[in-house]
Amino acid sequence: MSFEIDVRLRRGATELSYAFETGNGLTALFGPSGAGKTSLLDAVAGLVRPVSGRIVVSGKPVFDRERRIDLRPEQRRCGYVFQDLRLFPHKSVRGNLEFGWKLAPQDQRWLAFETALEFLGIGHLLDRMPATLSGGEAQRVAIGRALLSGPRFLLMDEPLASVDTARRGEILTLIERVRDELSLPILYVSHDRAEVDRLASRIIPVEPAG
């Protein structure tokens, strides 16, 4: 099992609950905006504390209310590609890519720096500042930064949201390569049916909280 999730989250006045288990490959959380998909990714990353339940990734519990397990975000080793990218504005593309890479212990850097640059086609951007990148370039840098931190699993939140149509195909292909060649468990959030059908080995529908 890649992800074993059974949690309740509080978001404002409403409480959301999720319960599912996934196999290998890419699992898509599919549903309309505002259904709480991002909240769930934040909980898996350790940025939001669930009210109750447990989250297990690749057999390792990262949160378990009853057993009082709650790993800090930096201990969970997820590669989180945020919907709003969150590139560090005061660091160059190189500084962004190296941030997580330098923090990962050497035996856990399963992706070489040069390989990532080539894989993502961002080698020529290293000295640029994030503010000068196009949407597609920034998106690829964000994916690269997540992969280079040596993550055990990936969380991708609408990674095509800030990309123009011309670049979409390119990044979709890239995500397929990550899925097939790197064989990491991936939790993928989208509200676009075609995108989900193309990428996902399993689709979890997420309904808005009543």
């Binding site: 990353a45 940025l47 800090r72 930096e74 997820c78 945020f82 969150r86 560090f88 504005p89 997580g100």
Partner: peptide, 15 residues
């Protein structure tokens, strides 16, 4: 300071 940048740093392994 955008606190979302801080949480991004945490997920990348920074305490």
């Amino acid at each position: 300071v955008d606190r979302r940048l801080e949480s991004a740093a945490r997920t990348l392994g920074a305490g």
